[in-house]
Simulated assay, not measured.
Amino acid sequence: MKVIQVRKASPTQDGAGVKISRVADFSGAMLDPFLMIDELKSDDNADFIGGFPPHPHRGIETFTYMIKGGFEHQDHMGNKKAIRGGDVQWMSTGSGVIHSEMPLATDEGMHGFQIWLNMPAKDKMRAAIYQDSVDSPLPELVDEQGSKLRALAGQWHFAGQSVTSPLKELSSGGAIADLTLAANGTAEFDLSDYDLAMAYIHTGSLDTANGGRGHMLVLDSQSAIQLEASAQGAGVLLFAGNKINEKIVHYGPFVMNTHQEIEQAIADYQSGKMGRLSL
């Protein structure tokens, strides 16, 4: 396995004071088509109770995955869903979405991810699309070691089997999976059909340099990918996708290709052209 780069998630805050660990690249140089991976992990409600009140997006796709705890998603298109442990939710925001994500009352703490993907210029002004897995449980595969792969998005091959998530239309063929490795468990993947492959360690550790929790390994997708857990096992979020290779201009919740498009997004939001969310 060839590791091209290692990135350590950095602590920060977003929304109404939600504490997160973030890996981001808005240059398009390294993580394309992914822009940002936020991990929310805390047993202290004060770290996330403020949630993400109503806010806009344009030009990106947002992907939420919950391991434990949950959020209630609501948007101006009329979608209102509780996203709990094991669920995912995807929005291809296109020309604009107003939405909120507020934590569900729970005493189990929270662990989940909010992920941004870029959209190619030709799709940035199309109508928004929404999908979740609440009524369609995500498929899982288990190998003889007891390791498990949950297909969050796209198609995956694991333990001699293939599985496809019901969410399969992510930008640039994006694919995401949650891999749970047993103690000293191993897994191999062929992601040579993709330009990009990454592994983010969210639980336990891998038996490799920089394989500790909170590390993102950017991998050579054209080489065989071999992951081995330490004696404590590991939880790893896997990413694959194809590069967009377009100029990125980022301002807050908007990701476009020119400064003029950003200015138009701000004007459209302020004038109400993106819609309004009634809570």
Rank of each mutant, 00 (worst) to 15 (best):
P120Y: 10
A24F: 15
Y251P: 00
L149H: 01
I67W: 08
V255S: 02
H157F: 07
G96K: 06
S27P: 14
T203M: 02
V236M: 01
A128V: 00
G272I: 04
L170Q: 05
T93I: 09
D47H: 09
I67E: 12
L227W: 10
L227N: 09
F239P: 05
M110E: 03
D190G: 04
S92T: 11
K2N: 14
G59Q: 15
A267N: 00
T203K: 04
F239D: 05
G70M: 03
M125C: 00
D38F: 15
T106C: 05
D25Y: 07
Q155S: 12
V218M: 12
I115E: 04
E246V: 03
G59M: 15
T186S: 11
Q222T: 11
E169W: 07
P103Q: 14
K81L: 05
S95E: 08
V142A: 00
N79R: 02
E39G: 09
S172A: 13
P54Q: 06
A128N: 08
G85N: 04
Y200I: 07
A240T: 07
A182D: 02
G212A: 03
G211P: 13
V134L: 06
G174F: 12
M30W: 15
I176N: 13
L117K: 10
Y269H: 14
M91A: 11
E144C: 04
P33S: 06
A153C: 13
T258F: 07
Y269M: 06
D268N: 11
M110G: 03
Q232T: 02
R84N: 13
L196N: 08
A29R: 12
S172Q: 09
